[in-house]
Amino acid sequence: MKREYVLLAVLGLVVVVNSVILAGVAWNRSGEPGTSVVLTERELVLPYSRSSASEENSGMALRLRHNRNARLLEWFDKEKLQTLGFESREFQAWGEKSYKRPQTRRAYVVLEYDGRTWAQALAESEGELAKLESEPQADERSVREQEQARQRLEQMQTADSRLVPVDADRDAVRLRSRYPDTETHIIVAGRVGMRRNDDGVQGYIRSLFPRSVHVPIRFHQELEAVAAGGNSSGIHPPRYQVTLHFGRRHEPWIGAIAPLFPESEGSAHS
């Protein structure tokens, strides 16, 4: 193989591949964004701490976090799993002679942001606390249960992600036709799996793509100011809001980042 041709082929490959990638990015971001939504630190999380590993990496990214409460995935039943390509032989019980560990599938997932499903979950949590508070505190156990319920509610009201998966499908267009509101329903690519529970099988969201959203340098100052205020562990109100756009390929990019003050968090999404 003549070396000159090989050299040209290698250089050409690099140029062509990068051109294709950048063209795809441009196409994704062309026209009006398919979805634009203002999320907060509850849904787009900074890295936990500045470890030595993160000091070696000067880039910044926010982790896209959805709500993983299994009680909010009642829609993800056996029937839904079958529409996503899971086969009935994968529903076998562990322990059966020909049991195979189920593989994950690719799907598009609809994330409802601070919508009806979230409101219902909050209301249920409030109801649980109210019920426990109305009962006499007979022993240490009931006091503990009440405290745990109170903490759970506070966590949900203040810090939990309000991005709740409400549906999944292999076809993003079909999903969008079922959930046309682009301000409250985001469609992202994801990896879904199935697991066994007491009622049989249930699906779950293994991961969403992308897992984190890159932060361009022009937004670093806002986030560095937030990070300088201390680490992000524990229950605390969100400190910033992020305008996130999703393009034609359901790939996101950050439009704006602004700090949040405690009294203004309530207006961040409305």
Binding site: V6, A9, I21, G24, H214, E251
Partner: peptide, 22 residues
Amino acid sequence: QIFNIVPTPNAFLVWGVFTLLL
């Protein structure tokens, strides 16, 4: 990472062809 692109296995093919040519 920069453009938040969904990963595909095509990257392995491209890297493979690049390295094979070398």
